[in-house]
């Protein structure tokens, strides 16, 4: 079972879409849990952004006993020290992942708000980060959600459904079998 948590206030439509795409993309049951508080120490005044590593740490402390993965979704603009921003971050073959909505919003880029666009992007990015937690690395198929997106053009090209290659890797993954069986790690 996958757990999904908002970190701070979020539009409900985004969480619903993320939940639906994760269930569809991975064939897993997803349970929405109570929101997880934003870690205040994650904020960097120098950068005006939030450390994704601190978000992952906060999530790691809140993984429910009956879940194998926990995905957090935040409105905050996330960064890792070496990069100017990230859309999200995951522990590769780990238990937690986080997705930031900040740069997925059209208005961040000076465009009119578009809820449907935001929900679609958030769901694709959620599948991408959860794919990393199952050990998938970036895929060369630009339509696969596991391909690397470094801008919205890349992100908007992708679908939320893993390509046959990544699906096959997931099907063969022992961790995925365990998760589907509902057992804890």
């Amino acid at each position: 079972m996958l757990a999904l948590a908002a970190m701070g206030e979020l539009p409900d439509g985004v969480l619903r879409r993320v939940e639906a795409e994760l269930e569809r993309g991975f064939g897993l049951r997803v349970r929405r849990m109570t929101p997880v508080a934003e870690p205040s120490e994650a904020y960097s005044p120098a950068r005006g952004q939030w450390s994704s590593a601190a978000f992952l740490k906060a999530l790691l402390a809140r993984v429910p006993a009956d879940a194998t993965r926990l995905l957090g979704v935040t409105e905050r603009d996330l960064f890792v020290p070496v990069l100017s921003f990230v859309y999200g971050q995951a522990q590769l073959e780990g238990r937690v992942a986080v997705v930031s909505l900040a740069r997925l919003r059209p208005e961040f880029h000076g465009l009119p708000a578009d809820t449907a666009e935001l929900e679609r992007r958030a769901a694709t990015e959620a599948v991408h980060e959860i794919g990393h937690t199952f050990g998938l690395v970036h895929c060369a198929d630009r339509l696969c959600p596991m391909s690397l997106s470094i801008d919205l053009v890349d992100l908007d090209r992708k679908t939320a459904e893993p390509c046959p290659g990544c699906s096959a890797l997931l099907e063969g993954s022992l961790e995925m079998k365990r998760t589907r069986a509902g057992g804890p790690r």
């Binding site: 890792v80 020290p81 070496v82 522990q91 590769l92 690395v137 690397l148």
Partner: peptide, 13 residues
């Protein structure tokens, strides 16, 4: 934090 974040990024690749 620098080594780990860059390493994590490259591992995802």
């Amino acid at each position: 934090t620098m080594t780990e974040s860059l390493a994590a990024w490259l591992r995802e690749d």
